[in-house]
Design a protein around this nucleic acid. Sequence first.
DNA 1: TCTTACTAACTGACCCGTCAGTTATTTCAT
DNA 2: ATGAAATAACTGACGGGTCAGTTAGTAAGA
Lengths: 207, 207
Amino acid sequence: MSRPSPKWRRRKEARPGEIVAAALEVFAERGFAAARTDDIARRAGVSKGVIYLYFATKQDLFRAVVRDAVTPNLAVVEAAVAGVDLPFSSTARVMLSVLTEVMATSQLGSVAKMVIAESGNFPDLALIWHEDVVSRALGLAARHIEQAQAKGEVRPGDPRIHAFSLVGPVLTGVLWREVFAPVGVPSFDLKAIAEQHIETALEGLIP
Amino acid sequence: MSRPSPKWRRRKEARPGEIVAAALEVFAERGFAAARTDDIARRAGVSKGVIYLYFATKQDLFRAVVRDAVTPNLAVVEAAVAGVDLPFSSTARVMLSVLTEVMATSQLGSVAKMVIAESGNFPDLALIWHEDVVSRALGLAARHIEQAQAKGEVRPGDPRIHAFSLVGPVLTGVLWREVFAPVGVPSFDLKAIAEQHIETALEGLIP
DNA sequence: TCTTACTAACTGACCCGTCAGTTATTTCAT
DNA sequence: ATGAAATAACTGACGGGTCAGTTAGTAAGA
């Protein structure tokens, strides 16, 4: 009996990430107020006190969840269309399929739901989300649309509203999945929405 | 001084509606869990006990809020396009402008936000919302699109995804307003989005 | 043996739901 | 008509449960 396996291990470096991951799950399921720190701790495999070694308050933890989910995805879409100079139809296709891929594989959908839900209680988060994600993505799309309009490749009109026309259906599909999939309503395939919609957006519904 | 004005009046019929209206405000601002029944009561001009004369629990009140906000708006969009047999482009225009009008003037935007936020905690509400609102509206649009496809007026493709293409940008605009307007980010005019987008959806972005 | 990551029991604030008491309104007797 | 008795809408203080955050003590690791 050299060593009985310990009841727990000291893992200072791994804890914060594990706690944030567990918190994302619980916050996404229950919302901020109804999420219990005990549940988050249990799901992260630690006791509640550990949370408060790494995060000052539950609110801080929530902010960290949003930040960590957003940050790595920020650059992806931007990088995908940076510096390319293709016809607008190609650029638009790339933008929408990359956005769809990111929304489908990352946790951005859950986080978006959380930000929508808690915008009233966390105005600062709504602002950060706007500045770091929404306005950036919308601005990127609008800029490309504006350039294409200058070349006569896209019809006149507010380029930011054109951006809405482009991404709105996919975002609606993401929220559909977040809300209805857990209660058993069949979801739409995001990729199918994106692929059919990009044709509609470019060519119109009328043949 | 025949009668000193009373501290309160008995208004059995008016109370439930006033309480639901106040609850909608507070729930929309704070979310279900963070909303305090005391606040709702104060805003309705009654004491907290009155809430429990008319509603069994806070959850019941929440359900009543969602039901009452949905019910009167259900028929409006359906009525607008029932029995008409116009070219698809006209039908689509009517559908989208009526939907936009309803979303802009009613409380459906706030309620949608609440349902998104609390779908995890109130699966029954998510189901009701799906059956009574979303699936009905989507089915209505999809049916019209299908008929138009049969006449060759609309390109092939999943009619329900085509419906997403039609309404997605407006719904995105509604949520934008719900989330960002309270924190000072300028909103888009829903009508402007609808009017520009319907052209895009019908004719495409490419001239 | 000493440091510290971690546990688990604890505290205190908060808030839902209750209920004993209060007051507006109605009904009934005169 | 008029006041007294009955009814029921309403108030507001409080009990009790829940949960965020704290801390005394334990065990891992060096």
